[in-house]
Design a protein around this nucleic acid. Sequence first.
DNA 1: CTGAAAGCGCTTACAG
DNA 2: CTGAAAGCGCTTACAG
Lengths: 343, 343
Amino acid sequence: MALERQSRLTLAGVAREAGVSAPTVSKVINGRHDVSGETRAKVLAVLARTGYKSPLQQRRTLADKPAVEVVLDSLISAYNIAVLNGIMECAVESGVEVLLHVTGIEAASPLNPDQRAQRIVDEGRCGMIVVTSAFGDAPLEAFRRRGIPVVVIDPLNPPSEDVVSIGSTDWAGGKDATTHLLELGHRRIAYLGGPDNVECNQARLHGYLAALRSHDVPVQDDYIIAGTFAADHGARGLDALLRLDRPPTAIFAGNDTIALGVLAEARRRNIQVPEQLSVVGFDGTSKAEESVPALTSVAQPFQEIGRAALRTVLRQLRGEVPDSRRVELATHLVVRESTAAPR
Amino acid sequence: MALERQSRLTLAGVAREAGVSAPTVSKVINGRHDVSGETRAKVLAVLARTGYKSPLQQRRTLADKPAVEVVLDSLISAYNIAVLNGIMECAVESGVEVLLHVTGIEAASPLNPDQRAQRIVDEGRCGMIVVTSAFGDAPLEAFRRRGIPVVVIDPLNPPSEDVVSIGSTDWAGGKDATTHLLELGHRRIAYLGGPDNVECNQARLHGYLAALRSHDVPVQDDYIIAGTFAADHGARGLDALLRLDRPPTAIFAGNDTIALGVLAEARRRNIQVPEQLSVVGFDGTSKAEESVPALTSVAQPFQEIGRAALRTVLRQLRGEVPDSRRVELATHLVVRESTAAPR
DNA sequence: CTGAAAGCGCTTACAG
DNA sequence: CTGAAAGCGCTTACAG
């Protein structure tokens, strides 16, 4: 009975239910721009509630598991892999298919955002998780307009409103790392950060500043060096710091890669870590564990982020409204061998 | 132009072409009985010639890319990621969807091999690539019986006949690594290998033996230590080798992880690499590049293996018979900082 | 059997 | 931004 109703559910029926005309529903389904936000929301709600499917979608076997597309910019980054791992774990538990899409691989996509969104719908995806920075607001907006749940993970910069994003508590992590060094007795602590304009880096920097402030340690401007999230920034940064009249006794690096660059440069210069210099990284990837000395680092909960992302997509599919458009999961400091009290 | 025609070809157009009415064409397409044989034939001819597709089919063929399932045992291993990268590259080029399945994540699968194979078919997969050792012969056989192309990548041990597998030239790689050390002047070269019963390890060992033989260097049994593909085997192996009366001047490790274990142990003992000890690894993962000193290693062509695997699946889908049930792609030695002439 | 006519579900073009 | 109206492509019901 309910099934029969379902199978008879037409676009016109949805329109009646939503109190709008059929053309309006058609526009919403096709992601047209000429629909007011209010009307769109009304229609999307009815679509979600009734589970309307276009004739094409109806014909697709109903037995299909829901499929979620995961978009990554590359498979090289250890974060991406860890996040993907979390997504896969959750996917197995919840019986969701995962389609993998790696953007770094494609040549410039010949599809504009709207075509791309259409393709996703045509291919029967029911949600997306975007673990990439190469994915601008325009495509996200196109997905949102069609009511495809999208979750963005750890964007370098926060996406437009209405897109749900998940990341780490970068500020708290930066504060933890710095507090650890302060508690070891360091007072001359440098921040060798990533790009100035990247939000997560700003948050880590401000966590560092907050920790210094709450320990009444004055901020020394030449201890703060912005750069890139790359190893050679770590190497060059150490070089610059050592040329100061009073070089720091500890370095908090904006990520593990920078920190490993510091370690490598220190080794070249025969500077003992942690005896002569303490180093803390950020990310807590396996590189931190494997380095010599093993790197003290603020671990991001990548796996949990992946799990949370898929759970959030599934919740949105069920029509639940996410608690918040931004969720940050707790980092935790992992103390290893690269930090000690200053001499 | 031709494209535009295609996209504009309607049922009405077919009807005009065939000199019948639209309803008649509709009946033919839908397999109705109330059409004369003559008319049906006429219509079918036009349908075949013009390649008419209903709107549904038009969208469907656009949407339904072939989907290949990739089975990995984990996302932690750097090989798996590199192979996956190659698969994704090829997938983008050939317009294939990739579904990801990570076996390590699941609890014991409640499905038996046959059910599992059935599920794959039901879900419309058209091929599988298995990058795992946890996947026995039974499921592979079940897939094969259903005519689902399966390619197994770098199995620890060769799978049953009729399953196509792709790997690296382990023997040649082992020979290259050892020859490199011999050409540097080493004569006391150890092989710190992986598990005795694993084929790729056997091949590397025999490449080592072949290189020694062709340089008339006698094999010394206590220079050959089997173990696991783990770092602590490297550390303990170095320990054992140093206790010999005449310790080796060079070590060929069965993989990079073992080699890095050797490097770490050497550092602990203040043995200079490569001045006092040369070390060669196998795999050529990024770890080899990033270690200090950077590790000379036999690089496996993981990316190419991934690409070849997907290409092979697609070829099988097109009905081509694979050239060989076993393909090995060339490794190549990458000389970095961990090898030098003996003192 | 055949096809003109009506109908269905969705989309498009456009007036307000 | 909205929806009445027209249109599109296909199917159905039915007269011949």
